[in-house]
Design a protein around this nucleic acid. Structure first.
Lengths: 199, 199
DNA sequence: ATCGTTTCAAAACGATGTTACAGATAATGG
DNA sequence: CCATTATCTGTAACATCGTTTTGAAACGAT
């Protein structure tokens, strides 16, 4: 008896994709319910049925961002040098933040949860974290780094995010040269400090 | 001829102080022009005369946050061990972010400037940075660390901010033990990597 | 005491997130 | 073939936000 439903998971995906583009073009301030609905050829209430509210859209955007970041990281091929692979991983992470500033802002600078970020909040980032952990594990197993793989991966990601946000905020230097130099110093020093000391 | 002016720098300071408290109590979403004006016993237009717009209030809040952070860091006394002083500096930085989450969010996660953050944007953070640089310089002059003091300070701050934000976002672990362990690992590894190798 | 200038806060305006509502639509039963 | 009805849809309404306009209040000068 009812009419055909338009507010399907397919429309949700389309809205999400358009939201990513709109976010990149206009920033978070330009990502309004009306603008997104109009751009996607639907109406605001559809947005609310599919995402709950704008915070739900932000969560979905964050998950989408982690999915894209995970895909980019997973596309990196392993070489014979596991430490060099960590460098390329860092470069890809950095490239992602630089190429998707507003999206990265939504992913990382999310308004802090009340007290505990439920498992659902961390789940989208899990593949990315496990990928980083895996690359770190290879270094440890090869004897190039030492420490707990999970701890090392967490610290590495924190350093990279801190550096990437400082860079896009313009706090790391105006010209490209000091920025590159500080990136090399940051990653090189951390890896150096984690390396087994050359007896 | 005119009547006495109420929208003075003193009122601006009072508004700023109330804004810090309101931000801590209600978060950024609760910091509305009407709420702040009502709390401070004035009206929205006063806010606009003193701060321009809400973005101007955010900039002023950021500057106030850096001033408070700078004061807390400057209150730390130097000891004979410059490296230990860096550890206490990091601890104070971390304590500030944990104790002023919303304010720190405004300070560090500010919406990215168009392309270059004008000198006025960086100025409030300058004292903090120079203080960190100074503590780093002591380590270098004492032969405990090596490298360019400015570069090292930048990297150290990026690591601390990355770690602090991961912590308050709940990404660094649920219980206190792994969080503390990862903090020790992060700072210890960086300082270790920067240390002059024990010939 | 009145005027003129300056300053203030109340109210108005557009836009936002969100929700209630009335029209539109398609399968079914006559 | 048409009416019914259950459901889905987009329009329009609501409250609130940032921001600006505006009329009234206040004080020195005449």
């Amino acid at each position: 008896m009812p009419r055909a439903k338009l507010r399907t998971p397919a429309l949700r995906q389309h809205l999400l994709s358009q939201a990513v583009d709109l976010l990149a073009e206009e920033g978070w301030a330009g990502l309004t319910a009306r603008a997104l609905a109009g751009r996607a050829g639907t109406s605001p209430p559809a947005l609310y049925e599919l995402f709950g509210d704008m915070a739900g859209l932000a969560r979905a955007l964050s998950a989408e961002g982690f999915a894209r970041l995970g895909a980019e990281l997973a596309a990196l091929r392993e070489t014979a040098d596991p430490v060099a692979d960590v460098w390329t991983l860092v470069a890809a992470y950095r490239r992602f933040v630089r190429g998707n500033r507003a999206l990265a802002e939504v992913m990382f600078s999310r308004p802090f949860p009340a007290f505990s970020p439920g498992p659902d909040e961390l789940a989208p980032a899990a593949p990315v974290r496990s990928l980083v952990t895996q690359r770190v594990r290879r270094c440890i197993e090869a004897g190039r780094l030492r420490g707990d793989e999970s701890d090392v991966a967490q610290v590495l990601v924190a350093l990279v995010e801190g550096m990437a946000f400082a860079e896009v905020a313009g706090r790391l230097g105006a010209s490209t040269e000091p920025v590159e130099r500080r990136w090399r110093l940051a990653v090189g020093t951390l890896l150096n400090g984690l390396a087994v000391p050359p007896l």
